[in-house]
Deep mutational scan, measured.
Amino acid sequence: TKEGQWDCSACLVQNEGSSTKCAACQNPRKQ
């Protein structure tokens, strides 16, 4: 995982660090 990116806890899609919700399932980003 690149720095600043995060993996969705629900569907495991990798998202940009600037995103607050998963691009695939709209699950909110977990801190």
Rank of each mutant, 00 (worst) to 15 (best):
T1V: 09
T1A: 09
T1F: 09
T1P: 00
T1D: 05
K2Y: 03
K2E: 05
K2S: 15
K2V: 02
K2W: 00
K2H: 01
K2M: 15
K2F: 02
K2L: 04
K2C: 10
K2D: 12
E3K: 07
E3A: 00
E3F: 06
E3G: 01
E3W: 00
E3S: 04
G4A: 12
G4D: 15
G4E: 15
G4M: 14
G4C: 12
G4Q: 14
Q5H: 09
Q5P: 02
Q5A: 01
Q5S: 13
Q5N: 14
W6R: 12
W6D: 15
W6M: 09
W6Y: 13
W6A: 12
D7R: 06
D7S: 08
D7H: 03
D7Q: 10
D7G: 06
D7A: 11
D7W: 01
D7L: 03
D7K: 12
C8N: 03
C8D: 01
C8A: 02
C8G: 02
C8S: 02
C8V: 01
C8H: 01
C8L: 00
S9P: 12
S9G: 06
S9H: 11
S9M: 07
S9Q: 12
S9K: 14
A10P: 05
A10H: 15
A10S: 03
A10L: 04
A10G: 00
A10C: 03
C11M: 02
C11P: 04
C11I: 00
C11S: 02
L12N: 15
L12T: 10
L12G: 06
L12S: 00
L12I: 04
L12F: 05
V13F: 04
V13G: 13
V13H: 14
V13K: 13
V13S: 08
V13I: 09
V13L: 08
Q14H: 08
Q14L: 10
Q14R: 08
Q14W: 06
Q14M: 13
N15L: 03
N15V: 08
N15K: 09
N15S: 02
N15G: 12
N15C: 03
N15R: 06
E16W: 03
E16N: 11
E16Q: 03
E16F: 07
E16T: 10
E16V: 04
G17C: 10
G17V: 13
G17K: 12
G17W: 07
G17T: 13
G17A: 12
S18Q: 12
S18K: 13
S18R: 06
S18L: 10
S18G: 14
S18V: 07
S19N: 11
S19F: 07
S19L: 12
T20Y: 03
T20D: 08
T20V: 06
T20R: 02
T20F: 06
T20M: 06
T20E: 06
K21V: 05
K21T: 07
K21F: 05
K21D: 08
K21H: 08
C22S: 02
C22A: 01
C22K: 01
C22W: 00
C22D: 03
C22V: 02
C22Y: 00
C22M: 00
C22T: 03
C22P: 03
A23R: 07
A23G: 04
A23D: 14
A23I: 04
A23T: 10
A24K: 10
A24Q: 09
A24T: 08
A24L: 05
A24N: 15
C25P: 04
C25M: 04
C25S: 01
C25E: 07
C25I: 02
Q26D: 15
Q26K: 15
Q26C: 11
Q26T: 09
Q26G: 11
Q26V: 03
Q26I: 05
Q26N: 14
Q26P: 02
N27S: 10
N27M: 05
N27A: 12
N27R: 10
N27I: 09
P28G: 06
P28D: 15
P28Q: 14
P28F: 04
R29F: 04
R29T: 14
R29P: 09
R29I: 11
R29D: 11
K30I: 13
K30L: 05
K30D: 11
K30W: 02
K30T: 13
K30R: 07
Q31T: 12
Q31L: 15
Q31C: 03
Q31E: 08
Q31Y: 04
Q31F: 05
Q31A: 13
